[in-house]
């Protein structure tokens, strides 16, 4: 079931909250704070949350977005949950590599692979 949300599309799959971004420009500076807040509320609503962020609709991000993701990752760990990222395009993945954040985040090529990772 999809929950209405201004920036995020959220569905459940095998006990995992799968989050997609509602539009391509979503990780621009302007909307970051609001997205961070929506994700924080989602994490706090479920102890031990398994959260998959699907980046298939994302074609831009900024250092503010990276900061938001780092803060989210810490929050999820505090709540004994797990965060995985998937479907990151080549240009965006390059940003993760340049900043070495590909070592901080659990990144999978596809959402299917990420979902399987939650079950193992």
């Amino acid at each position: 079931m999809e929950q209405p949300s201004s920036h995020l599309k959220i569905r459940r799959a095998n006990g995992v909250s799968v989050v997609e971004f509602a539009d391509r420009k979503i990780l621009e500076e302007l909307s970051i704070q609001e997205i961070g807040e929506e994700l924080r509320q989602l994490v706090e609503s479920e102890a031990g949350i398994k959260l998959l962020l699907n980046f298939k609709n994302v074609d831009h991000l900024s250092s503010a977005a990276l900061g938001m993701l780092i803060t989210l990752n810490k929050k999820i760990k505090e709540h004994n949950g797990k965060l995985k990222l998937s479907d990151i395009n080549r240009q965006i993945f390059e940003v993760f590599k340049i900043t070495r954040l590909n070592r901080v985040f659990d990144i999978h090529e596809t959402s299917q692979q990420a979902l399987a990772g939650f079950q193992s």
């Binding site: 900024s62 990276l66 990752n73 900043t99 954040l101």
Partner: peptide, 21 residues
């Protein structure tokens, strides 16, 4: 340096580095 191991999980400080990169 935001890519140093000790700074990797800081949520800020990457903007200038990205501009240079």
């Amino acid at each position: 340096d935001p890519t140093a191991n000790t700074n990797l999980e800081r949520p800020y400080g990457r903007g200038i580095m990205l501009m240079y990169a």
